[in-house]
């Protein structure tokens, strides 16, 4: 059924003069949105650093309970999906509709891989009781504020996972759009915007990963 729909040229929205103006506006809007997101994550990370400074023992002990190998695998997944998103945009500019779709599927796959690993990490924490605040039941921690580390861990990674889910939603949306609209050199807006958003997700992870898993 899907084969019968032939992708059409994108129509410029009524209030724009031309495709160029529309594309420039969308790109600027996306960058501003990312700036806003960076302020939000930035504030959260500042909070994280302050907590690390206040409770160095809790952070050292909590960090020892995270598996840096799983974190590394996830870093790999995110990097690779970021690369395939960039490829998708590149193929879009060349008008290679099927290559766009292939790379979007690959990105989705790696993103799902990230979630699977995250799922195992989270369930291990539920199992051991290394949970935030009052739900912290794990035994064998000597630092009385170990729960603070896991509180921050869940808030920060939880917010990040939420962004991963939204990013995956955007990829699915791009797949739908790719059936209806033809990508051209002048029009790859959905893929490029989703790619930018995905780049933010990568960026946040590149700060969270060392802060939570490695440093110290």
């Amino acid at each position: 059924m899907a084969e019968t729909i032939v992708p059409q040229e994108h129509e410029v929205a009524h209030h724009f003069d031309d495709l160029e103006q529309e594309f420039q506006s969308h790109r600027m809007g996306m960058w501003l949105f990312l700036a806003s997101e960076i302020m939000m994550f930035g504030a959260l990370l500042v909070g994280g650093f302050i907590l690390m400074y206040r409770f160095p023992g809790a952070f050292a002990e909590g960090r020892a309970h995270l598996d840096w190998r799983l974190g590394t695998i996830n870093t790999f997944f995110l990097l690779t999906s970021g690369y395939t998103m960039a490829l998708a945009a590149m193929h879009g500019q060349r008008g290679n509709q099927s290559a766009v779709r292939r790379n979007l599927w690959l990105s989705l796959l790696f993103a799902a891989g990230f979630l699977v690993v995250k799922f195992f990490e989270y369930s291990a924490k539920f199992h051991h009781g290394t949970l935030p605040g009052k739900y912290f039941t794990a035994a064998g921690f000597s630092d009385p504020h170990a729960h603070v580390f896991f509180g921050f861990y869940f808030v920060a990674t939880g917010l990040h996972v939420l962004h991963v889910l939204i990013g995956m939603g955007l990829m699915v949306w791009c797949l739908f759009v790719s059936r209806k609209v033809k990508f051209t050199r002048a029009y790859i807006t959905p893929v490029e915007m989703s790619g930018l958003y995905w780049a933010l997700i990568d960026l946040v992870w590149f700060i969270l990963f060392p802060l939570l898993y490695l440093v110290g």
Binding site: R54, P132, G133, K134, V155
Partner: peptide
């Protein structure tokens, strides 16, 4: 969740 970020009773600030 009573994490201890802002609540002084939990070590927060």
């Amino acid at each position: 969740l009573h994490i201890g970020i802002f609540d002084p009773a939990l070590g927060g600030d």
